[in-house]
Design a binder for these strands. Structure first.
Lengths: 334, 334
DNA sequence: GATGGTGATGTAATCGATTACATAATCGAG
DNA sequence: CTCGATTATGTAATCGATTACATCACCATC
């Protein structure tokens, strides 16, 4: 494998000159430039990036930590990140924690080890102090999630208000017994959506029934099983607000398997607006998050942190939108 | 940021000894070992992996090139790769080409640049000669796809026979006008599935009608629109075999929008058995690929190539399975 | 007591590129 | 014609770890 020295020898110049040609820095006459390029061509030379990384102490690589890459929501956000990364010549390393919080903390180590220039977390179950300490020293951005009481740069939507919006929509349609399929309570996003749900109930003076709130884990399966549980209640809900679309689809299926109809017997609202939400029948009423844009903004923010540009607005809240479809009845069908 | 020198100084040893402690190689007395560990602890030292990489000329990282990470099929394969990689201390770099063949060739360059120790391609639209030349010099494994007439290590199913199986199932149910929604013709996998479809027709002496074969791109949207086209034919098909589940779902939706019922008016068979295939209504009859296992095997194969172990069976064909559900009628419902 | 083996540690080369600094050549202004 | 600026190129240090090789101490064996 040819190295820069071989190229230098063949072109009859120093390695410094070869490097200058490679990186297009400094002054090189067109003539030597050509000689170097010819040598590169002849030797089929490819610069070894490890040498460069070590010397420059940067890898132009960012790590994205995802809780679950098979979840379409995250892969869409990832796409946004990739788009911006590619445009700026950065590579994206993927860390899939498969919902394991310990793995999450492990990934944090790649920063001091200098393996990447920065990180984006699409999950935030790491101990707050640890995360804060790292964020002080290295470029880190949280997307979708955030950590309470920190000023770690964040891109997300306002989960509380959107959950409130979703719940209010059901109330407006006349529902009073509204259940909530929450996400895991150790992620803030789930707690926020639950809070929004509570706020909506309170605002309309609807009493909270603890039995109507069930903690899931964002999977179809959990949505399905928890809904069976809800339907077995003495006074089952007439509407279900699920913390994501996959659980909402699970809910619909469970209702059907029990002989119920959606939305006639039970109305269902989801969250995220994944592709399947509009395809599934009945199409899901849901909160649309700008997934791609969240990814873009997060990466843009990260780039500014890496480049040491002072970031004025560190906490970005993007707009979301209630998309009314067929799964909750009442509204017009889109 | 502390380096190995700082640790050495503090522990009153040479950097060589620190390295020995870090890597657990060579002989070190328990006493100095402790001193070194204390120094590491005190300085909060993390080894800079770039130095290590350069010296050892390996990164314990593999690159996985995916045509579309938002496609659940690929993310499932990726999971299998990750599982094995993690167990062997390898990191996984993700390259999402977003179906751009040029990007695919670009990714190939990270190998001679020594950025990764090996690559797995879940797509193979690269020029054959180029790919072969690289595969001769570096560890490369193809998964799902393969390149005709090469002996590049590959893990996949037998797409021809499984497509034949799927088509035959429809024939057995009495269908004679069977359409095929193919994938893009520049990927071999699509051509193989088309071939299997043709074989089944030939075997049962059913004439091929060119109008019944439509080239899609594996997306829901293409499945939807091509099916509308099929339904507008003078003699529309009574069954549709789609080259993947997402197009199959698109087909079902199109049939419904035209007032048809599935499977009563038109039977539909998919391919891959993604999660949604069993959830969607009607549940999809489809070819189940062992996605996770494909990933695992591919990574295992790659590891052996990286470690220079002679690989006897370079081309691995895994078993697939026809899963009969509701979308094609006739069979029992699962 | 000489010899050789083993274990613990240190010295310094090395991986491949980048870049601060040095040097040489060229040019233009006064 | 000289001086300083500018341009082109080279020399060598550097990034941080790993490791071949050297050294030294200690012990066992004959």
């Amino acid at each position: 494998m040819a190295s820069i020295k071989d190229v230098a020898k063949r072109a009859n110049v120093s390695t410094a000159t070869v490097s200058r040609v490679l990186r297009n820095t400094g002054n090189v006459t067109e003539e030597t430039r050509q000689r170097v390029l010819e040598a590169i061509e002849a030797l089929n030379y490819q610069p070894n990036v490890l040498g460069r990384y070590l010397r420059r102490m940067e890898t132009e690589t960012v790590l994205v930590v995802v809780p679950d890459i098979t979840n379409p929501f995250f892969s869409k956000v990832l796409r946004g990140i990739e788009a911006v990364a590619l445009k700026h010549g950065y590579q994206v390393l993927l860390g899939d924690t498969q919902n394991d919080a310990r793995l999450e903390e492990q990934y944090l180590n790649v920063l001091p080890q200098r393996q990447v220039d920065g990180m984006i977390f699409l999950t935030a179950r790491i101990r707050k102090e640890l995360m804060e300490e790292m964020a002080r020293q290295f470029p880190i951005v949280l997307a979708c999630e955030y950590l309470e009481g920190t000023d770690i740069p964040t891109v997300s939507i306002d989960n509380i208000s959107s959950a409130r919006k979703a719940t209010e929509h059901l109330i407006r349609l006349g529902h009073r017994r509204i259940a909530h399929l929450s996400g895991p309570m150790d992620v803030i996003l789930s707690r926020d959506r639950l809070r929004g749900y509570y706020q909506a109930l309170a605002q309309h003076e609807i009493e909270v029934d603890a039995a109507l709130v069930q903690e899931g884990d964002f999977t179809y399966e959990s949505g399905y099983h928890l809904t069976l549980k809800l339907l077995a209640l003495e006074k089952p809900p007439t509407a279900i607000f699920a913390a994501n679309d996959e659980m909402a689809i699970g809910a619909v299926k469970a209702i059907r398997h029990r002989g119920g109809r959606v939305p006639d017997d039970v109305a269902v609202v989801g969250f995220d607006d994944i592709h399947m939400a509009s395809i599934f029948e009945p199409s899901l009423t849901t909160i649309a998050q700008p997934m791609f844009e969240i990814g873009q903004k997060a990466m843009e923010l990260l780039l500014r942190l890496i480049e040491g540009i002072d970031v004025e607005r560190r906490q970005l809240v993007l707009p979301d939108r209630l998309v009314i479809r067929d799964s909750c009845g009442g509204g017009r069908s889109v």
